[in-house]
Lab assay of single mutants.
Amino acid sequence: DHDVVPEDKFQETLHLKEKEGCPQAFHALLSWLLTQDSTAILDFWRVLFKDYNLERYGRLQPILDSFPKDVDLSQPRKGRKPPAVPKALVPPPRLPTKRKASEEARAAAPAALTPRGTASPGSQLKAKPPKKPESSAEQQRLPLGNGIQTMSASVQRAVAMSSGDVPGARGAVEGILIQQVFESGGSKKCIQVGGEFYTPSKFEDSGSGKNKARSSSGPKPLVRAKGAQGAAPGGGEARLGQQGSVPAPLALPSDPQLHQKNEDECAVCRDGGELICCDGCPRAFHLACLSPPLREIPSGTWRCSSCLQATVQEVQPRAEEPRPQEPPVETPLPPGLRSAGEEVRGPPGEPLAGMDTTLVYKHLPAPPSAAPLPGLDSSALHPLLCVGPEGQQNLAPGARCGVCGDGTDVLRCTHCAAAFHWRCHFPAGTSRPGTGLRCRSCSGDVTPAPVEGVLAPSPARLAPGPAKDDTASHEPALHRDDLESLLSEHTFDGILQWAIQSMARPAAPFPS
Protein backbone atom coordinates (compact mmCIF):
# COMPACT_ATOMS: atom_id res chain seq x y z
CA ASP A 1 0.00 0.00 0.00
CA HIS A 2 3.01 2.31 0.04
CA ASP A 3 2.55 2.74 -3.69
CA VAL A 4 -1.00 3.98 -3.03
CA VAL A 5 -0.49 6.22 0.03
CA PRO A 6 2.76 8.21 0.05
CA GLU A 7 4.77 8.84 3.16
CA ASP A 8 3.73 12.47 3.59
CA LYS A 9 0.05 11.58 3.32
CA PHE A 10 0.56 8.77 5.80
CA GLN A 11 2.12 11.12 8.37
CA GLU A 12 -0.58 13.71 7.73
CA THR A 13 -3.27 11.11 8.40
CA LEU A 14 -1.61 10.07 11.65
CA HIS A 15 -1.45 13.69 12.79
CA LEU A 16 -5.09 14.26 11.86
CA LYS A 17 -6.12 11.13 13.76
CA GLU A 18 -4.45 12.37 16.94
CA LYS A 19 -5.98 15.82 16.51
CA GLU A 20 -9.56 15.09 15.37
CA GLY A 21 -9.99 11.33 15.74
CA CYS A 22 -10.05 8.31 13.48
CA PRO A 23 -13.34 9.06 11.64
CA GLN A 24 -12.12 12.45 10.45
CA ALA A 25 -8.78 10.97 9.39
CA PHE A 26 -10.55 8.20 7.49
CA HIS A 27 -12.81 10.65 5.75
CA ALA A 28 -9.92 12.90 4.76
CA LEU A 29 -7.88 10.03 3.36
CA LEU A 30 -10.83 8.65 1.42
CA SER A 31 -11.55 12.06 -0.02
CA TRP A 32 -7.92 12.42 -1.05
CA LEU A 33 -7.85 8.97 -2.67
CA LEU A 34 -10.92 9.79 -4.73
CA THR A 35 -9.03 12.70 -6.25
CA GLN A 36 -6.25 10.42 -7.56
CA ASP A 37 -6.15 8.89 -11.00
CA SER A 38 -7.65 5.56 -11.93
CA THR A 39 -4.28 3.83 -11.69
CA ALA A 40 -3.95 4.64 -7.98
CA ILE A 41 -7.50 3.47 -7.30
CA LEU A 42 -6.84 0.25 -9.23
CA ASP A 43 -3.71 -0.32 -7.15
CA PHE A 44 -5.83 0.18 -4.07
CA TRP A 45 -8.22 -2.58 -5.17
CA ARG A 46 -5.33 -4.89 -5.98
CA VAL A 47 -3.88 -4.40 -2.50
CA LEU A 48 -7.27 -5.06 -0.96
CA PHE A 49 -7.98 -8.27 -2.84
CA LYS A 50 -4.77 -10.02 -1.91
CA ASP A 51 -5.03 -13.66 -1.01
CA TYR A 52 -4.48 -13.22 2.72
CA ASN A 53 -7.18 -10.56 2.85
CA LEU A 54 -9.62 -12.78 0.98
CA GLU A 55 -8.86 -15.65 3.36
CA ARG A 56 -9.26 -13.53 6.46
CA TYR A 57 -12.42 -11.73 5.34
CA GLY A 58 -14.83 -14.01 3.57
CA ARG A 59 -17.22 -11.22 2.65
CA LEU A 60 -14.64 -9.69 0.31
CA GLN A 61 -15.10 -12.48 -2.21
CA PRO A 62 -18.66 -11.40 -3.22
CA ILE A 63 -17.34 -7.86 -3.68
CA LEU A 64 -14.55 -9.14 -5.89
CA ASP A 65 -17.01 -11.21 -7.90
CA SER A 66 -19.17 -8.13 -8.49
CA PHE A 67 -16.42 -6.42 -10.46
CA PRO A 68 -16.60 -6.49 -14.26
CA LYS A 69 -14.81 -9.42 -15.81
CA ASP A 70 -12.54 -7.18 -17.87
CA VAL A 71 -11.00 -5.60 -14.74
CA ASP A 72 -7.81 -7.41 -13.81
CA LEU A 73 -7.36 -7.33 -10.03
CA SER A 74 -5.10 -10.35 -9.77
CA GLN A 75 -1.82 -10.10 -7.90
CA PRO A 76 1.50 -11.51 -9.13
CA ARG A 77 2.93 -14.29 -6.97
CA LYS A 78 6.50 -13.00 -7.08
CA GLY A 79 5.92 -9.63 -5.52
CA ARG A 80 4.21 -6.39 -6.39
CA LYS A 81 4.79 -4.19 -9.37
CA PRO A 82 3.11 -1.10 -10.76
CA PRO A 83 0.60 -1.96 -13.50
CA ALA A 84 2.38 0.35 -15.94
CA VAL A 85 5.63 -1.71 -15.86
CA PRO A 86 5.53 -4.14 -18.81
CA LYS A 87 8.20 -6.50 -17.49
CA ALA A 88 7.61 -8.80 -14.53
CA LEU A 89 10.58 -7.64 -12.51
CA VAL A 90 11.02 -8.34 -8.85
CA PRO A 91 10.90 -4.99 -7.05
CA PRO A 92 13.92 -3.93 -5.00
CA PRO A 93 14.01 -4.58 -1.24
CA ARG A 94 11.13 -2.72 0.37
CA LEU A 95 12.41 -0.61 3.20
CA PRO A 96 8.96 0.97 3.66
CA THR A 97 7.74 -2.42 4.84
CA LYS A 98 10.08 -2.21 7.80
CA ARG A 99 8.93 1.31 8.37
CA LYS A 100 5.33 0.17 8.40
CA ALA A 101 6.03 -2.69 10.79
CA SER A 102 7.91 -0.47 13.22
CA GLU A 103 5.39 2.33 13.08
CA GLU A 104 2.43 0.00 13.49
CA ALA A 105 4.12 -1.74 16.39
CA ARG A 106 4.55 1.66 17.99
CA ALA A 107 1.15 3.13 17.13
CA ALA A 108 -0.84 -0.13 17.12
CA ALA A 109 -2.91 0.95 14.13
CA PRO A 110 -2.70 4.14 12.05
CA ALA A 111 -5.77 6.11 11.11
CA ALA A 112 -5.75 5.58 7.37
CA LEU A 113 -8.06 3.89 4.90
CA THR A 114 -5.31 1.44 4.01
CA PRO A 115 -4.05 -1.52 6.02
CA ARG A 116 -2.32 1.05 8.23
CA GLY A 117 -5.35 2.84 9.23
CA THR A 118 -8.22 2.27 11.53
CA ALA A 119 -7.70 1.36 15.14
CA SER A 120 -7.16 3.94 17.83
CA PRO A 121 -3.56 3.57 19.05
CA GLY A 122 -3.98 5.89 22.01
CA SER A 123 -6.68 3.79 23.56
CA GLN A 124 -4.88 0.57 22.76
CA LEU A 125 -1.67 1.69 24.44
CA LYS A 126 -3.58 2.70 27.54
CA ALA A 127 -5.41 -0.57 27.82
CA LYS A 128 -2.67 -2.92 26.57
CA PRO A 129 -0.74 -4.02 29.71
CA PRO A 130 -3.28 -6.57 31.03
CA LYS A 131 -3.37 -8.33 27.64
CA LYS A 132 0.13 -7.68 26.40
CA PRO A 133 1.02 -11.17 25.10
CA GLU A 134 -2.19 -11.61 23.15
CA SER A 135 -2.24 -8.03 21.90
CA SER A 136 1.35 -8.35 20.71
CA ALA A 137 0.38 -11.37 18.69
CA GLU A 138 -2.46 -9.38 17.21
CA GLN A 139 -0.09 -6.59 16.30
CA GLN A 140 1.90 -8.97 14.16
CA ARG A 141 -1.27 -9.70 12.24
CA LEU A 142 -2.28 -6.08 11.86
CA PRO A 143 -0.08 -5.42 8.80
CA LEU A 144 -1.75 -8.38 7.10
CA GLY A 145 -5.42 -7.76 7.75
CA ASN A 146 -5.70 -4.59 9.78
CA GLY A 147 -7.28 -2.46 7.13
CA ILE A 148 -9.21 -3.89 4.27
CA GLN A 149 -9.93 -0.87 2.20
CA THR A 150 -12.16 -0.84 -0.85
CA MET A 151 -13.22 1.95 -3.15
CA SER A 152 -15.04 2.00 -6.47
CA ALA A 153 -17.99 3.61 -8.18
CA SER A 154 -20.28 0.91 -6.83
CA VAL A 155 -18.83 -0.04 -3.44
CA GLN A 156 -16.60 1.84 -1.02
CA ARG A 157 -15.61 0.23 2.24
CA ALA A 158 -13.04 0.72 4.96
CA VAL A 159 -12.29 -2.13 7.33
CA ALA A 160 -10.64 -1.85 10.72
CA MET A 161 -9.37 -4.91 12.53
CA SER A 162 -9.11 -5.00 16.27
CA SER A 163 -7.39 -7.13 18.84
CA GLY A 164 -10.55 -7.51 20.87
CA ASP A 165 -11.02 -11.11 19.73
CA VAL A 166 -8.61 -12.31 22.41
CA PRO A 167 -9.86 -15.68 23.74
CA GLY A 168 -11.46 -15.47 27.14
CA ALA A 169 -12.24 -11.78 26.98
CA ARG A 170 -15.82 -11.36 28.18
CA GLY A 171 -17.73 -9.15 25.79
CA ALA A 172 -14.61 -8.69 23.68
CA VAL A 173 -14.98 -6.47 20.68
CA GLU A 174 -14.71 -8.52 17.52
CA GLY A 175 -13.78 -5.62 15.28
CA ILE A 176 -14.87 -2.47 13.55
CA LEU A 177 -15.85 -2.14 9.96
CA ILE A 178 -16.34 1.45 8.99
CA GLN A 179 -18.01 0.83 5.72
CA GLN A 180 -19.44 3.20 3.20
CA VAL A 181 -21.40 1.50 0.47
CA PHE A 182 -22.46 3.80 -2.31
CA GLU A 183 -25.20 1.86 -3.99
CA SER A 184 -28.00 3.62 -5.85
CA GLY A 185 -26.97 6.89 -4.26
CA GLY A 186 -27.38 5.58 -0.70
CA SER A 187 -24.86 5.24 2.11
CA LYS A 188 -24.65 2.41 4.63
CA LYS A 189 -22.35 1.49 7.48
CA CYS A 190 -21.52 -1.99 8.71
CA ILE A 191 -19.62 -3.70 11.48
CA GLN A 192 -17.47 -6.79 11.34
CA VAL A 193 -18.11 -9.56 13.87
CA GLY A 194 -15.87 -12.60 13.79
CA GLY A 195 -14.85 -12.27 10.16
CA GLU A 196 -18.38 -11.54 8.94
CA PHE A 197 -19.64 -8.13 7.84
CA TYR A 198 -23.09 -7.15 9.06
CA THR A 199 -25.03 -4.44 7.30
CA PRO A 200 -27.57 -2.27 9.19
CA SER A 201 -30.37 -4.65 8.21
CA LYS A 202 -28.70 -7.48 10.13
CA PHE A 203 -26.50 -5.55 12.48
CA GLU A 204 -25.42 -7.51 15.54
CA ASP A 205 -24.38 -5.99 18.83
CA SER A 206 -21.07 -7.72 19.50
CA GLY A 207 -20.23 -8.00 23.18
CA SER A 208 -20.24 -4.72 24.99
CA GLY A 209 -19.93 -2.42 22.00
CA LYS A 210 -22.78 -1.12 19.91
CA ASN A 211 -23.06 0.95 16.80
CA LYS A 212 -24.27 4.07 18.50
CA ALA A 213 -24.55 6.40 15.53
CA ARG A 214 -24.35 5.28 11.92
CA SER A 215 -22.90 8.50 10.68
CA SER A 216 -19.77 9.34 8.74
CA SER A 217 -19.67 13.11 9.21
CA GLY A 218 -18.87 15.44 12.06
CA PRO A 219 -16.32 15.12 14.83
CA LYS A 220 -18.25 12.33 16.52
CA PRO A 221 -16.90 8.76 15.97
CA LEU A 222 -18.97 6.42 13.88
CA VAL A 223 -19.24 4.14 16.84
CA ARG A 224 -19.25 5.81 20.21
CA ALA A 225 -15.84 4.37 20.86
CA LYS A 226 -13.38 6.69 22.51
CA GLY A 227 -10.92 4.57 24.43
CA ALA A 228 -10.02 7.47 26.69
CA GLN A 229 -13.56 7.50 27.99
CA GLY A 230 -13.44 3.95 29.28
CA ALA A 231 -16.72 2.77 30.64
CA ALA A 232 -19.77 4.91 31.11
CA PRO A 233 -20.10 6.81 34.42
CA GLY A 234 -22.86 4.48 35.57
CA GLY A 235 -20.85 1.38 34.77
CA GLY A 236 -22.07 1.52 31.21
CA GLU A 237 -20.39 -0.19 28.31
CA ALA A 238 -17.01 -0.80 26.74
CA ARG A 239 -16.14 1.21 23.65
CA LEU A 240 -15.46 -0.31 20.25
CA GLY A 241 -12.36 1.80 19.83
CA GLN A 242 -10.75 0.30 22.94
CA GLN A 243 -8.57 -2.34 21.29
CA GLY A 244 -7.23 -5.24 23.31
CA SER A 245 -8.65 -3.95 26.56
CA VAL A 246 -9.56 -5.91 29.62
CA PRO A 247 -13.24 -6.79 30.07
CA ALA A 248 -15.25 -3.88 31.39
CA PRO A 249 -18.62 -3.84 33.17
CA LEU A 250 -21.06 -4.18 30.36
CA ALA A 251 -24.50 -2.81 31.01
CA LEU A 252 -26.48 -1.14 33.74
CA PRO A 253 -28.38 -3.52 36.03
CA SER A 254 -31.67 -2.34 34.57
CA ASP A 255 -30.72 -3.24 31.01
CA PRO A 256 -33.15 -5.90 29.78
CA GLN A 257 -30.55 -7.50 27.50
CA LEU A 258 -26.77 -7.38 27.46
CA HIS A 259 -26.49 -8.60 23.88
CA GLN A 260 -29.57 -7.03 22.40
CA LYS A 261 -30.04 -6.38 18.73
CA ASN A 262 -31.09 -2.85 17.93
CA GLU A 263 -33.61 -2.16 15.24
CA ASP A 264 -32.46 -0.87 11.88
CA GLU A 265 -35.33 1.56 11.44
CA CYS A 266 -36.55 4.60 13.37
CA ALA A 267 -39.14 3.80 16.03
CA VAL A 268 -41.01 7.03 15.17
CA CYS A 269 -41.11 7.25 11.38
CA ARG A 270 -40.26 3.58 10.67
CA ASP A 271 -37.62 4.63 8.15
CA GLY A 272 -33.94 3.73 7.94
CA GLY A 273 -30.87 5.90 7.67
CA GLU A 274 -28.54 7.29 10.30
CA LEU A 275 -29.96 6.25 13.67
CA ILE A 276 -29.02 6.53 17.33
CA CYS A 277 -29.55 3.33 19.31
CA CYS A 278 -30.93 3.23 22.85
CA ASP A 279 -28.81 1.54 25.54
CA GLY A 280 -31.84 0.32 27.44
CA CYS A 281 -34.05 -1.13 24.69
CA PRO A 282 -33.69 -2.30 21.07
CA ARG A 283 -35.23 0.86 19.63
CA ALA A 284 -33.39 3.35 17.42
CA PHE A 285 -34.28 6.88 16.38
CA HIS A 286 -33.39 9.60 13.91
CA LEU A 287 -31.94 12.66 15.60
CA ALA A 288 -34.60 14.79 13.92
CA CYS A 289 -37.46 12.50 15.03
CA LEU A 290 -36.73 12.99 18.72
CA SER A 291 -38.64 15.54 20.74
CA PRO A 292 -36.85 17.87 21.12
CA PRO A 293 -34.57 16.93 18.21
CA LEU A 294 -30.85 16.55 18.76
CA ARG A 295 -28.11 18.12 16.66
CA GLU A 296 -25.31 15.75 17.64
CA ILE A 297 -24.75 12.38 19.24
CA PRO A 298 -24.52 12.71 23.06
CA SER A 299 -21.48 11.21 24.74
CA GLY A 300 -21.77 8.40 27.22
CA THR A 301 -24.73 6.12 27.72
CA TRP A 302 -27.95 7.31 26.08
CA ARG A 303 -31.48 6.06 26.68
CA CYS A 304 -34.75 6.95 25.06
CA SER A 305 -37.56 8.67 26.92
CA SER A 306 -39.39 5.40 27.58
CA CYS A 307 -36.40 4.00 29.45
CA LEU A 308 -35.93 7.30 31.30
CA GLN A 309 -39.57 7.35 32.37
CA ALA A 310 -39.26 3.78 33.64
CA THR A 311 -36.21 4.78 35.67
CA VAL A 312 -37.98 7.84 37.07
CA GLN A 313 -41.02 5.76 38.01
CA GLU A 314 -38.79 3.40 39.98
CA VAL A 315 -37.19 6.25 41.89
CA GLN A 316 -40.32 8.37 42.32
CA PRO A 317 -42.09 6.19 44.96
CA ARG A 318 -39.06 6.43 47.21
CA ALA A 319 -38.82 10.17 46.63
CA GLU A 320 -42.47 10.70 47.50
CA GLU A 321 -42.14 9.11 50.96
CA PRO A 322 -42.52 11.69 53.75
CA ARG A 323 -39.09 12.88 54.75
CA PRO A 324 -39.36 15.89 57.06
CA GLN A 325 -36.72 18.60 56.72
CA GLU A 326 -34.90 16.96 53.84
CA PRO A 327 -33.94 18.61 50.57
CA PRO A 328 -35.65 17.40 47.41
CA VAL A 329 -34.36 14.12 46.08
CA GLU A 330 -32.08 14.63 43.12
CA THR A 331 -31.80 11.84 40.58
CA PRO A 332 -28.99 12.39 38.06
CA LEU A 333 -30.00 11.01 34.70
CA PRO A 334 -28.11 10.98 31.40
CA PRO A 335 -29.22 13.50 28.79
CA GLY A 336 -32.13 11.77 27.10
CA LEU A 337 -33.67 12.16 23.70
CA ARG A 338 -37.40 12.16 23.60
CA SER A 339 -39.27 10.39 20.92
CA ALA A 340 -42.20 12.09 19.26
CA GLY A 341 -45.18 12.47 21.58
CA GLU A 342 -43.08 11.83 24.69
CA GLU A 343 -41.64 14.54 26.85
CA VAL A 344 -39.89 14.59 30.22
CA ARG A 345 -39.18 18.13 31.23
CA GLY A 346 -36.44 19.02 33.64
CA PRO A 347 -36.34 22.00 35.99
CA PRO A 348 -36.12 25.45 34.39
CA GLY A 349 -32.70 26.80 33.73
CA GLU A 350 -31.18 23.45 32.78
CA PRO A 351 -29.23 23.22 29.50
CA LEU A 352 -31.03 21.90 26.47
CA ALA A 353 -31.13 18.17 25.94
CA GLY A 354 -28.42 16.86 23.68
CA MET A 355 -25.56 18.73 25.36
CA ASP A 356 -22.87 16.76 27.14
CA THR A 357 -24.31 17.50 30.52
CA THR A 358 -26.29 15.58 33.11
CA LEU A 359 -29.87 16.62 33.71
CA VAL A 360 -31.05 16.54 37.31
CA TYR A 361 -34.69 15.73 37.88
CA LYS A 362 -35.94 16.96 41.24
CA HIS A 363 -38.82 15.15 42.87
CA LEU A 364 -40.48 17.76 45.05
CA PRO A 365 -43.06 16.74 47.66
CA ALA A 366 -46.64 17.12 46.54
CA PRO A 367 -48.26 20.40 47.63
CA PRO A 368 -51.09 20.21 50.15
CA SER A 369 -54.40 19.52 48.51
CA ALA A 370 -56.73 22.49 48.27
CA ALA A 371 -60.41 22.64 47.53
CA PRO A 372 -60.96 22.99 43.78
CA LEU A 373 -62.20 26.38 42.70
CA PRO A 374 -65.05 26.68 40.23
CA GLY A 375 -63.63 26.81 36.73
CA LEU A 376 -64.97 29.83 34.86
CA ASP A 377 -64.20 30.79 31.31
CA SER A 378 -62.59 34.17 30.73
CA SER A 379 -65.63 35.29 28.79
CA ALA A 380 -67.80 34.40 31.75
CA LEU A 381 -65.98 36.89 33.95
CA HIS A 382 -66.24 39.62 31.35
CA PRO A 383 -69.52 41.04 32.76
CA LEU A 384 -67.85 41.50 36.13
CA LEU A 385 -65.13 43.62 34.59
CA CYS A 386 -67.45 45.91 32.65
CA VAL A 387 -67.84 48.67 35.21
CA GLY A 388 -68.83 52.18 34.26
CA PRO A 389 -67.37 55.41 35.55
CA GLU A 390 -69.91 55.72 38.33
CA GLY A 391 -69.35 52.17 39.51
CA GLN A 392 -72.45 50.96 37.63
CA GLN A 393 -71.79 47.77 35.71
CA ASN A 394 -72.35 48.01 31.99
CA LEU A 395 -73.99 45.36 29.86
CA ALA A 396 -71.72 42.90 28.13
CA PRO A 397 -72.45 41.97 24.53
CA GLY A 398 -74.76 38.97 24.28
CA ALA A 399 -76.13 39.24 27.83
CA ARG A 400 -79.58 37.68 28.14
CA CYS A 401 -82.25 37.48 30.76
CA GLY A 402 -82.12 34.31 32.78
CA VAL A 403 -85.91 33.88 32.65
CA CYS A 404 -87.05 34.67 29.12
CA GLY A 405 -83.70 34.33 27.34
CA ASP A 406 -84.08 37.69 25.57
CA GLY A 407 -81.18 40.11 25.53
CA THR A 408 -83.15 43.26 24.67
CA ASP A 409 -83.15 46.03 27.29
CA VAL A 410 -81.72 43.80 29.98
CA LEU A 411 -80.65 45.18 33.33
CA ARG A 412 -77.62 44.24 35.38
CA CYS A 413 -77.94 43.25 39.02
CA THR A 414 -75.65 45.36 41.18
CA HIS A 415 -75.19 42.48 43.60
CA CYS A 416 -74.56 39.38 41.47
CA ALA A 417 -74.00 41.01 38.03
CA ALA A 418 -76.68 38.82 36.43
CA ALA A 419 -78.66 40.12 33.45
CA PHE A 420 -82.43 40.24 33.92
CA HIS A 421 -85.65 41.96 32.88
CA TRP A 422 -87.52 43.79 35.60
CA ARG A 423 -90.81 42.56 34.18
CA CYS A 424 -89.63 38.94 34.22
CA HIS A 425 -88.32 38.96 37.76
CA PHE A 426 -91.03 41.20 39.23
CA PRO A 427 -94.23 40.54 37.22
CA ALA A 428 -96.46 41.94 39.98
CA GLY A 429 -95.69 45.47 38.81
CA THR A 430 -93.32 46.48 41.56
CA SER A 431 -91.91 49.88 40.81
CA ARG A 432 -88.30 49.83 39.74
CA PRO A 433 -85.98 51.90 41.93
CA GLY A 434 -83.69 54.36 40.27
CA THR A 435 -80.41 52.98 41.61
CA GLY A 436 -79.24 49.76 43.21
CA LEU A 437 -81.10 47.40 40.89
CA ARG A 438 -81.16 43.84 42.13
CA CYS A 439 -82.55 40.70 40.57
CA ARG A 440 -85.22 38.52 42.12
CA SER A 441 -82.68 36.26 43.83
CA CYS A 442 -80.74 39.08 45.44
CA SER A 443 -83.81 41.09 46.47
CA GLY A 444 -85.32 38.19 48.41
CA ASP A 445 -88.44 37.67 46.22
CA VAL A 446 -88.89 34.00 45.44
CA THR A 447 -92.13 34.37 43.48
CA PRO A 448 -91.75 32.45 40.22
CA ALA A 449 -92.23 34.34 37.02
CA PRO A 450 -95.18 33.17 34.88
CA VAL A 451 -93.24 32.40 31.72
CA GLU A 452 -94.57 29.57 29.60
CA GLY A 453 -92.22 26.66 28.98
CA VAL A 454 -89.69 27.75 31.58
CA LEU A 455 -89.32 25.88 34.82
CA ALA A 456 -89.57 28.01 37.92
CA PRO A 457 -86.62 28.08 40.25
CA SER A 458 -86.83 26.00 43.37
CA PRO A 459 -88.09 27.76 46.49
CA ALA A 460 -84.97 26.56 48.23
CA ARG A 461 -82.90 28.88 46.09
CA LEU A 462 -82.75 31.52 48.81
CA ALA A 463 -81.74 31.13 52.37
CA PRO A 464 -81.59 34.70 53.66
CA GLY A 465 -79.63 35.33 56.80
CA PRO A 466 -80.48 37.72 59.62
CA ALA A 467 -81.90 41.04 58.51
CA LYS A 468 -79.58 43.03 60.69
CA ASP A 469 -76.77 42.78 58.14
CA ASP A 470 -78.09 43.93 54.79
CA THR A 471 -75.17 42.60 52.78
CA ALA A 472 -74.96 39.25 54.52
CA SER A 473 -78.76 38.82 54.50
CA HIS A 474 -78.80 38.44 50.71
CA GLU A 475 -76.19 35.67 50.52
CA PRO A 476 -77.98 32.79 48.77
CA ALA A 477 -77.12 29.19 49.64
CA LEU A 478 -77.49 27.25 46.38
CA HIS A 479 -77.56 23.48 46.36
CA ARG A 480 -77.72 20.73 43.75
CA ASP A 481 -81.43 21.21 43.06
CA ASP A 482 -80.84 24.93 42.51
CA LEU A 483 -78.16 24.16 39.95
CA GLU A 484 -80.44 21.73 38.16
CA SER A 485 -83.14 24.37 38.10
CA LEU A 486 -80.77 26.89 36.59
CA LEU A 487 -79.52 24.40 34.04
CA SER A 488 -83.06 23.65 32.98
CA GLU A 489 -83.41 27.24 31.81
CA HIS A 490 -80.66 26.68 29.21
CA THR A 491 -79.18 30.11 29.80
CA PHE A 492 -75.59 30.99 30.30
CA ASP A 493 -76.41 33.85 32.63
CA GLY A 494 -78.18 31.47 34.99
CA ILE A 495 -75.14 29.23 35.18
CA LEU A 496 -72.86 32.21 35.59
CA GLN A 497 -75.06 33.56 38.35
CA TRP A 498 -74.86 30.27 40.21
CA ALA A 499 -71.06 30.14 39.84
CA ILE A 500 -70.59 33.68 41.10
CA GLN A 501 -72.90 33.19 44.04
CA SER A 502 -71.15 29.95 44.97
CA MET A 503 -67.84 31.73 45.41
CA ALA A 504 -67.23 33.14 48.85
CA ARG A 505 -67.24 36.91 49.00
CA PRO A 506 -65.45 38.89 51.69
CA ALA A 507 -67.58 40.18 54.49
CA ALA A 508 -68.65 43.78 54.27
CA PRO A 509 -66.48 46.06 56.40
CA PHE A 510 -68.11 47.49 59.45
CA PRO A 511 -68.84 51.20 59.23
CA SER A 512 -66.29 53.22 61.09
Rank of each mutant, 00 (worst) to 15 (best):
R345F: 11
V451Q: 15
V403M: 05
Q257M: 13
P348M: 11
D271P: 04
P383T: 09
P509G: 09
A380D: 06
S458Y: 14
T435C: 12
C424W: 02
L483K: 03
A310T: 12
R283H: 14
L486M: 10
P466W: 14
L294E: 06
P476M: 15
R480H: 02
D409F: 01
H415W: 04
D356C: 08
V344I: 12
D481W: 00
R345N: 13
A417D: 15
R345D: 05
A428K: 12
P292V: 09
Q257G: 10
L290T: 14
P509C: 11
T435Q: 13
F426T: 05
D264K: 15
C404W: 02
C424Q: 05
H490F: 04
S306M: 02
P332R: 13
L337Q: 03
E263W: 14
A417Y: 03
I276D: 09
L352V: 09
G391H: 03
Q309A: 03
G453R: 09
A463N: 06
A288G: 13
S443K: 05
H415S: 02
S339E: 14
G241D: 12
C281K: 10
L496S: 01
P298M: 14
L333M: 05
L411R: 12
R505W: 15
R480I: 14
R323Q: 09
P282N: 11
L376K: 08
V387M: 14
G280N: 03
V329W: 13
P448W: 14
V344L: 12
L337E: 00
P328I: 11
F285L: 11
D470Q: 08
C266K: 06
R270T: 14
Q243G: 14
R303D: 15
G434C: 07
G402N: 09
K261Q: 14
R423N: 02
W498S: 03
P389Y: 14
I495S: 01
G444D: 06
P332L: 11
F420L: 02
P397I: 13
G300N: 06
G273F: 04
C307F: 08
D279P: 05
D482C: 04
S299V: 14
D406W: 13
G341P: 11
P282Y: 09
G465D: 03
A399S: 05
D356K: 03
P459A: 06
P511Q: 07
L385G: 10
A508L: 09
E321A: 09
D279W: 09
C269I: 05
R323A: 07
L359H: 05
P389W: 15
P322W: 14
Y361F: 09
A508F: 07
L287Y: 11
Q242I: 12
D264L: 06
C424M: 01
T435K: 06
Q393C: 14
F426D: 09
A340H: 13
V315F: 10
A477Y: 08
P347C: 04
T301D: 03
G241F: 08
A248L: 14
Q392M: 09
D356T: 13
G407V: 14
P351W: 15
R480P: 05
A467V: 10
R295K: 06
Q243V: 08
A477P: 14
D409C: 08
L337P: 11
L290P: 14
Q392Y: 13
P292L: 12
N394T: 11
D271K: 11
E343V: 13
Y361L: 11
C289M: 11
A380Q: 10
S305L: 10
R303K: 15
S299H: 09
E342D: 10
